[in-house]
Nucleic acid binder design. Structure first.
Lengths: 234, 234
DNA sequence: CGGTAATTTGAAGAGCCTCAACTAGGGTGG
DNA sequence: CCACCCTAGTTGAGGCTCTTCAAATTACCG
């Protein structure tokens, strides 16, 4: 789909401001007032909920190119803690831009709608993974999910996944303890499904991983046939 | 927030068609072509994913008034199976209406965007519940969630929750077996947190339920301050 | 090169599942 | 009108998965 000049202008505004953030930086804390979203230019981030007992659940791992903190665009209270898993660069996506988009760039607005739907499906898949599959399958599903998403922006990527998450992070994402994540990674390696290096993992048998995890790639191009026509450019 | 005459017209079109459906009816199956969404006029429905081993995970329980099958509005393939938990009435929400809304009713489009964000937050909460709390807490959180949502449309509702889900349904929602759901309901009753009747439940101690489940009500009114102005009516 | 964070491994126990049997209700057909 | 059946709920026993706690090893960073 080709963007019009006007649409490109809007998106370019978003990249005008860039903020370098280090690992562990919290872009927003739960209950903070929500003032907008971010575009993650580089680095990995995570949205997480804190539990009363002190543990946390990562609800979404954000990769470069993702729009981060989308609930902050539309909802008042900050619902999730957004923090950097690695150092990186973020561009603020203020609410005012969202207003402009919905007012003047209908097609772009519809695209954002699609974007959130894709996120929604992704969350549904994680619920199914955590709720109905065992530990090994959950870890496998996460590895496949990250790999497929990274391939979208880097088609050259092969079977090597550079994974800047600690086993604690992984556990917080798939609902396991770090200790058990460690055992499951070992199990996957013992079964020849993956090979582990420092800070990276090779997926030796993607069909095998998909089989044990029930993973289905949903990252094909979404439907854009229903989008309204963009307004004429000046 | 007051809707304009034009906006009301669009929404009224959605209610023009009504289809009566019985319990168990599948509005859409996974992988079916997705042709749109529905407005659930009455009855309860569920969106679910089927797992390779034959089990299923309910990703969302839909109550009267909900827009059901939102991914089908924006995405091509049907990703979830949508089925009726009770008999009820649904109104089709075809994609073409979504196109119209985004083209001619910017503020309404933004409202839909907010709606999906609310859904997204709800899914995040369930992930945290399933991933990081024990069985009793998960059941308690579900009961509270349903109660709070029903109160939005029926403020007169007190502590009695009419619950037309089987224990199997509940288990599929919170990631447990029906057998264990049964034990947890009994435990909640033994602790004086709930009282069980046939087809309904009384929440005797909502603060207590909230405490053990870590449940936080997010169903306060969403932020609408950022919405663009609606177009002038003719 | 020292100190801290992250990973790894073991042992024991808790939580949830599986299997199985039994009960209660609600509808249907004889 | 009752016998029957099918679904849903209930309860018990045993086992497996995952957690917890603890300690040792390795990697990383200043």
């Amino acid at each position: 789909m080709k963007l019009t000049a006007g649409e490109r202008d809007v998106l370019r505004v978003l990249e005008s401001q860039r903020r370098t953030v280090s690992r562990g930086t919290m872009l927003r804390r739960e209950r903070d007032p929500a003032d907008g979203m971010w575009v993650l230019q580089s680095g990995w981030a995570a949205s997480a909920l804190g539990m009363p007992d002190g543990s946390r659940q990562i609800t979404k791992v954000h990769l470069p190119g993702d729009v981060v903190g989308t609930p902050g665009g539309a909802l008042n209270g900050g619902v999730e803690t957004v923090s950097m898993l690695t150092s990186g660069i973020v561009s603020p996506f203020p609410r005012s831009v969202l207003t402009t988009v919905f007012r003047d760039h209908q097609r772009l607005a519809a695209l954002f709608f699609v974007l959130v739907q894709v996120e929604r499906v992704s969350l549904s898949d994680r619920i199914a993974s955590i709720g109905r599959t065992d530990a090994r399958a959950r870890v496998a599903a996460l590895l496949l999910d990250l790999t497929h998403r990274l391939r979208l922006t880097n088609p050259a990527m092969e079977d090597r996944l550079s994974l800047p998450m600690t086993q604690e992070d992984i556990g917080d994402t798939v609902g396991l303890t770090a200790v058990h994540v460690n055992r499951m990674m070992r199990a996957l390696a013992d079964d020849g499904l993956i090979a582990r290096g420092p800070g990276s993992i090779r997926l030796l048998d993607e069909p095998g991983l998909a089989r044990i995890s029930g993973y289905i790639s949903r990252w094909s191009s979404p439907d854009t046939s229903w989008l309204p026509e963009p307004p004429e450019d000046a």
